[in-house]
Structures are given as C-alpha cells and as structure tokens.
C-alpha cells in the first residue's frame, strides 16, 4: 500500500518539476547580433551621433541574403543596399532599438543615416551599419554622463558588444572622453527575474539583458 502511494507521489512530483521547468513558450533570443559602436563628436566636444555596426549571426545572415544574386563570393550591391534600406525602415518604428539618456534624462534621436549592408564571405555573416544622430548634441560632462542602451525589448533579438574594441571615439573633439560598458550578469538575470517578466510582453524583457555604454568626458567626478 505504502509503496504504491510513494511511487505515485514521487513520479507525480518529478513530473510536476519537469512540467514547470519548461516555461510557457519562454521568450529567448532567436537572432544574435554582435555590435560595435563609434561615438561621434562635433567640434565642441559634444556627442552628435552614434555609428552603429551590427554583425548578424550565421543563421540570420543566411536567411537575409537567401535568393540574392551572387557573383564571385560577393552579393549584388544593389540587393545589399536595398536590404539595408528595408531593415532601417522597419527599425525606425522601434527607434532602432536605441535608448539614449543624458544624466538620466531621455535624449531624442533622429532617423538613421548612411545605412550600409556588407557581406563577409569568410565568416558567412551579414553586417548592417548606420548612423544614429542625436537631435541635440550632448556634452557628456561629470554628472551628465551619456548612457546608451541598444536592445530589442521583446528579446527576440539579443544585441551584445563584441569583445574586441566594442566602442570607439570618432569625429571632432573628444579629448578626455571615455566609454565604459556595463554588461549584466546574464545568469543572474535569468535566474532572478519574476515570472511576469517573461510572460507579459509589456515588461520589456530585453532591457534586463541590455549592456549599457556610458560616455564620460572631462575630469573624473570624485
């Protein structure tokens, strides 16, 4: 008598664990982007734009260029130009996944410029590069550091900085400026987020996994 109950309850308990462990169509990234960002300054040392490069994963890359005319290992330039244009048109609705703040206050960004798609035959990966101008150039002095986060709120796409030279400074005057990248502890994020972060799309799941690039200029604040 006892053993049957035990077997029943133990099996049921383990089944429950197996069942609950599989989260309801849990959101997880399907597209992986490696990112590089150049911070571009104007002559007065203010941040005026971000030149962002996204290198797509092999799966997405193959998907994006599938059926495109190709000669000598290079895809048709017209096709790639059209691809960049179309991608940026779609991304505009999402503000290119960018979130810029200065001293914690949101900074408005404009329409993407100079979009460019390139194909790397050796790695089989597609890249998209575009310039995201700030509507009002920002001076990143002590106390008003500029924070940049680029992420897909739905976390369908994960965007991570490359390990080798993830950021650079470009353009006019940027002496004394530096960018620090804060990467969230991914394991910690996965294990500590509440259930609702995964089930409610309004919760912008992707924000939890987003790296923050912080631009600081001038003397260090003590």
């Amino acid at each position: 008598m006892q053993s049957s109950w035990k077997q029943f309850l133990v099996s049921l308990a383990v089944m429950g664990i197996v069942a609950l462990s599989a989260q309801p169509s849990m959101a997880h990234p399907h597209v992986f982007i490696d990112m590089k960002t150049a911070f571009r300054f104007d002559d007065e040392g203010r941040l005026e734009a971000l030149r962002i490069t996204w290198i797509f994963d092999e799966f997405y890359s193959a998907y994006a260029v599938d059926g495109a005319p190709k000669a000598n290992g290079a895809y048709d330039e017209k096709y790639l130009a059209l691809l960049a244009e179309e991608n940026l048109k779609n991304l505009a609705e999402w503000n290119y996944f960018a979130e810029v703040t200065s001293g914690g206050t949101p900074v408005e960004t404009g329409e993407a410029l100079d979009g460019l798609s390139t194909w790397n035959e050796e790695t089989g990966r597609l890249s998209l590069t575009f310039t995201l101008p700030l509507k009002v150039p920002q001076a990143a002095s002590a106390g008003t550091a500029v924070d940049v986060r680029i992420f897909d709120p739905s976390y369908y796409i994960t965007i991570d900085y490359v390990s080798d030279e993830p950021v650079s400074l470009a353009g006019g005057q940027h002496q004394g400026c530096s960018v620090a990248i804060a990467v969230p502890e991914v394991e910690q994020v996965w294990t500590s987020l509440p259930e609702s972060a995964f089930t409610n799309p309004d919760n912008r799941l992707g924000a939890n996994f987003a790296s923050t690039a912080t631009l600081n200029c001038g003397p260090e604040k003590s």
Binding site: Q23, T191, L193, E195
Partner: peptide
C-alpha cells in the same frame, strides 16, 4: 495577468539552462 513573484530557485535555474 500573473502577479509579480520571484521565481522558485529551480525554475530560475531551468530557465538559465533553457537559455
């Protein structure tokens, strides 16, 4: 909607494995 609750340790770890 579901209430905002911290996940059990187990489901958190499973989530990470799934990731």
């Amino acid at each position: 909607g579901s209430p905002a609750e911290a996940p059990g340790m187990f489901s958190g770890i499973m989530r990470y494995i799934m990731a």
